[in-house]
């Protein structure tokens, strides 16, 4: 198939950036979106031009590295599918495809379609862990966990940290990401001890990074490649409010 590509090119974080148009031919319908971009890069190199920079790694939908807004939808038109698992058969021959990076101030463009997602790491560093020093664990079956609880934690833990939620949110809010992390750990008995501390710290870091607030519109859930639900945000709201109330009476440390 033949495609017209309109792709965001930006030399550096300070560069203003602009769209460039490319015509690409002989794209196989069976190739993935990223393989199509590989082909474009090969074409650019053959012309002696600089190849396109975009993040990608595992190409099997789990590492969370790929991050493209395709025709106005993060990760493109297919539900619960990362960019790397999106295949060209979902596009029409001769179609014009617009490719942009995630757009949010806390996730600035480094180059072309590559953005800096380090705020996510910092949110985790501030509290997204269950302290369990290596070697200090009790037997794994010492604390039985109801299947339903484990399943809920797993639903939340499925988050791959790609940032599509922020990209899709009209407020550039990172609530779905933070909520998934918080829900995963707060739901488990192991995470109970640090629950309030974790929730307060992670939300404070999230806000401090400059993400917008949640307005419950649900675009994040719609584009999430792992189907993380808004239920997680409800839980985060509840856990955060309860932690703040406790904090009011006796500081949580």
């Amino acid at each position: 198939m033949k495609l017209n590509l309109r792709i965001w090119r930006q030399k550096s974080p300070l560069d203003k950036g602009r769209f460039e148009e490319y015509a690409l031919d002989n794209v196989s319908e069976d190739s993935s979106f990223l393989e199509m971009l590989d082909l474009l890069c090969e074409q650019l190199v053959a012309e002696g031009k600089e190849a396109l920079a975009f993040d990608h790694d595992c190409r099997e939908g789990i590492c969370g590295m790929c991050a493209l807004t395709i025709n106005g939808i993060p990760h493109g038109p297919e539900k619960q599918t990362t960019t790397c698992q999106l295949h060209m058969r979902h596009f029409k021959d001769g179609e014009t495809i617009t490719v942009e990076p995630w757009r949010a101030k806390p996730l600035p463009v480094i180059k072309d379609l590559v953005v800096d997602r380090s705020p996510f790491d910092r949110i985790i560093q501030s509290g997204g862990f269950i302290s369990a020093r290596t070697g200090s664990a009790v037997d794994a079956n010492a604390v039985p966990i109801p299947k339903q609880t484990a399943d809920t934690a797993m639903d939340a833990a499925a988050c791959i940290g790609c940032g599509a939620c922020v990209a899709a949110c009209p407020n550039a809010s990172a609530m779905l990401f933070t909520a998934a992390k918080v829900s995963h750990m707060n739901n488990l008995p192991q995470g109970e001890v640090e629950k309030d501390r974790r929730t307060l710290a992670m939300v404070t870091t999230m806000d401090g990074e400059g993400f917008g607030g949640c307005t419950n519109v649900g675009e994040c859930e719609a584009v999430c490649p792992k189907g993380i639900s808004l239920d997680m945000i409800a839980q985060l709201n509840r856990d955060y409010t309860s932690a703040q109330v406790k904090n009011f009476f006796e500081p949580v440390s």
């Binding site: 664990a137 109801p146 299947k147 399943d151 797993m154 995963h184 995470g191």
Partner: peptide, 22 residues
């Protein structure tokens, strides 16, 4: 065996049976 203990303590949500055991 220690690995499983360690991971469970960290909150790795391994699959469980209805009785709550791994």
């Amino acid at each position: 065996a220690d690995i499983i203990d360690q991971c469970v303590a960290q909150g790795v949500p391994f699959a469980r049976e209805y009785g709550g055991l791994l």
